[in-house]
Amino acid sequence: MRKKEIALFRVYVWERPVRIYHWLNALCIVVLCITGYLIGNPIVLQHGGNDASMLYFFGWIRFIHFAAAYVFLINFIVRIYWGFVGNQYSDWKNYFPYSKKHFQNMWDVLMVDILMIKKKDIETAGHNAVANFTYFLTFLAFLLSVVTGFGMYSAMSDNWFSSLFHWVIPFFGGDLILRMIHHVTMWFFVVFTIFHVYLVFYHDYVDGSGVLSSMAGGWKFVTKDKFLRKNQKKPEPAKK
């Protein structure tokens, strides 16, 4: 097989707010998952001196969870905002599977990438269709954990913000159900992260497009002619 030359563009995909968002988000999720897991399955302290007044271990775990929850929420709001003002790759519309084409693309990615059945070239500068859809689900899960989390929190805190979430409790049918749903979102994130991190490394390895580092520096590599065919215009020049 003759080897053809492929020219690659270096495209600026992830602007700084998205990158900061991503890593802050990842950090929050890790913290929330760990503290959340501990809230559900607390470590039992068997201190010789069993005086509760000397300890606030579990209280701290919960505090960290709630603090991280606020950071997580604000960060999430920033990202949603960026979905309206950011570049084409971070546009909120990418994430909504509203068109037939999006579903077709998803199918292709599944067949080619995951199941390795079909052979077809798919390349996107932003996320591919499946990735977008997964992120869409992830955003929904964020929303769910925020709503259920603040719903539960509204019973513990009289602060105005969490009070906005009082309606959540009867809406879901009580605190226990809320807790169950909230707890399940944790496992969604655990499983998501496993797949996500793997796929990022995998694509980095297979496509050689620099996906992995794109979340650090913002740049990705794409095949020049294909990129031009798709975009009918030159890639956005980086702002200086």
Binding site: M1, E5, I6, M116, V206, G208, G218, F221, P237, K239
Partner: peptide, 30 residues
């Protein structure tokens, strides 16, 4: 999946690796 990828996609991977070009240097990072 990782194992299968390594077996099935070896060709493609090689293809990419061997034909990678130096990208245009007309853009700068921020």
């Amino acid at each position: 999946h990782a194992v299968i990828t390594n077996i099935r996609k070896k060709d493609e991977i090689n293809e990419h690796i061997e034909t990678s070009a130096v990208p245009d240097r007309d853009q700068e990072g921020d």
